[in-house]
Computed example of a mutant assay.
Amino acid sequence: MTAPVTAPPSRRRPPRARTVFAAAHVVADPLADTTPQGPAALDWDATLAFRHHLWSHGLGVAEAMDTAQRGMGLDWPAAAELIRRSAAEARTVGGLLACGVGTDQLPSTGASLAEIRRAYEEQLGLVEDAGGRPVLMASPQLAAAATGPADYQELYGHLLRQATEPVVLHWLGPMFAPALEGYWGSTDLDAAMDTFQQIIADNPGKVDGVKVSLLDAEREVALRRRLPDTVRCYTGDDFHYPELIAGDDHGFSHALLGIFDPLAPLAAEAVRLLDDADPEGTVRFRAALDPTVALSRHLFQAPTRYYKTGVVLLAWLAGHQSHFSMVGGLQSARSLPHLRRAYELADGLGLFPDPELAAARMGTLLAVYGVADT
């Protein structure tokens, strides 16, 4: 086991008016002799140091989720070890930690509903034992095996009844994972929302919140207004997050966002502006966060599931890791023009603590491809 990473000496308080998680990426071991289909190899020191970076700014960490390449290079044994190590680190600093619970120890196709339930139970037990807040992630295996809404209601109901603490339900759209098309038993999103809502209603006190990643602000607001007062809505909408977090006269969204990985310092400061429920604070919040949407939309452009490549690029350029390599070789998943534009947008936002380092590293990457200018 890697020794606990020393927390940064300066720590900011978490926002009070919103609960905010940044879905954190993982740092690959660039010297591991691996293949894209082989077991994941992580640089544990750099991976855990980045979690301390997020905690130091007052953000919670959403661990072992889509941003960490679950289902796209990060296998279940590595995810399980990541959850255990991050939970141990969180305890050293009192950091907020939510952890993904899925079924990715199973083959991608052919699993039965009973096998899917046992896989969820195994991961739920591990997260609870580690001390993390469970996030029940959408399961591609369940999407393939379920015959209709009743299968989702029965399986999720079973899991919620045995959970020792309230969990977060995660609705991830097919733009992030095509295998999740028709989740909750229907390709009709209104019907799917009804099933989703029914699962929450059937299990009072068991759902802390819902994370919605559909990139559809109107649908998220409609869902948010139908939730019980005790259930939070965590936006996962990386296209419309400023307006959803700011909210309206009927409520607001909390946040669990992949884009808050590269935006951590800026995003944390912005969200704290909402703490005093002052209209001027909301104006300042929007003024701080609205300019970041162009970068987020760029990173999350179709095919959306490859947004992780831009996230890791920015972590490298910002000095959080020593290399630009990824689990499964996904550093090659975006084009060079896409990566160069990500650098330009991030630099324009002042996201790099050392702009000269960022420029030099971007220049090195471009030079590999025979491009001489940044």
Results as ranks from 00 to 15, higher is better:
Ala32Pro: 00
Gly173Val: 00
Ala177Leu: 14
Ala270Trp: 07
Leu351Arg: 02
Ala40Glu: 01
Leu189Glu: 12
Pro166Tyr: 03
Gly102Leu: 01
Tyr306Asn: 15
Glu269Phe: 09
Leu349His: 05
Thr282His: 11
Glu218Asp: 15
Trp76His: 14
Arg18Glu: 03
Gly58Glu: 00
Pro262Lys: 02
Gln198Asp: 13
Val135Trp: 06
Met72Thr: 12
Leu263Ala: 05
Ser332Leu: 13
His57Pro: 00
His53Pro: 04
Glu356Leu: 13
Ser325Pro: 06
Leu31Ala: 14
Arg13Glu: 13
Asp373Cys: 00
Ala80Asn: 04
Pro174Glu: 01
Ala78Arg: 01
Arg340Met: 04
Cys99Lys: 05
Ala98Pro: 03
Arg161Ile: 10
Ser335Cys: 02
Leu124Gln: 07
Tyr343Thr: 04
Val127His: 09
Gln105Ile: 12
Ala88Val: 07
Thr374Gln: 02
Asp29Cys: 02
Leu289Cys: 09
Ala64Phe: 03
Arg85Trp: 11
Glu121Arg: 13
Gln321Gly: 08
Gly251Pro: 07
Glu122Leu: 15
Gln37Thr: 15
Leu273Cys: 12
Pro14Ala: 12
Trp316Asn: 01
Leu317Val: 05
Ala64Pro: 01
Ser186Phe: 03
Val93Gly: 07
Leu274Met: 10
Ala40Arg: 00
Pro166Ser: 06
His254Thr: 01
Gly132Phe: 03
Arg91Glu: 14
Arg70Thr: 14
Ala294Pro: 05
Trp55Gln: 04
Pro262His: 06
Glu344Trp: 04
Glu121Lys: 09
Ser253His: 12
Arg361Leu: 10
His240Met: 05
Gly310Ser: 08
Leu155Asp: 08
Met175Arg: 14
Leu351Ser: 00
Asp354Tyr: 08
Ala23Cys: 11
Phe285Asn: 00
Pro30Lys: 01
Trp76Phe: 12
Glu220Arg: 02
Arg18His: 06
His240Tyr: 11
Ala342Met: 00
Phe324Pro: 05
Ser112Cys: 08
Ser10Trp: 14
Pro15Thr: 03
Gly350Cys: 01
Phe324Trp: 12
Asp278Tyr: 11
Asp45Ala: 12
Leu48Arg: 00
Gln141Met: 15
Gly131Phe: 04
Phe21Arg: 01
Pro262Ser: 07
Ala315Tyr: 07
Arg224Ile: 06
Pro107Phe: 05
Arg334Trp: 01
Leu136Met: 13
Leu295Glu: 02
Gln198Phe: 09
Pro265Phe: 08
Ser86Arg: 08
Phe196Lys: 09
Glu356Ala: 13
Tyr234Ala: 08
Ala264Trp: 03
Pro355Ala: 10
Leu289Trp: 05
Gln197Leu: 13
Gly185Glu: 00
Arg334Asp: 00
Gly94Leu: 09
Ala255Asp: 05
Ala78Lys: 03
Leu274Ser: 07
Ala78Phe: 02
Leu215Tyr: 15
Val368Phe: 15
Gln197Ser: 15
Gly370Asn: 01
Trp44Val: 01
Leu97Thr: 07
Tyr369Arg: 12
Glu115Ala: 15
Thr304Asp: 04
Ala79Leu: 08
Leu142Tyr: 10
Ala144Asn: 13
His57Arg: 10
Thr103Glu: 04
Glu165Met: 14
His52Trp: 04
Ala255Ser: 10
Ala138Trp: 09
Val127Tyr: 07
Ala24Cys: 09
Lys206Leu: 07
Asp194Gln: 15
His158Thr: 14
Arg224Pro: 02
Met1Leu: 15
Thr35Glu: 10
Ala130Arg: 06
Phe21Tyr: 15
Ala333Cys: 05
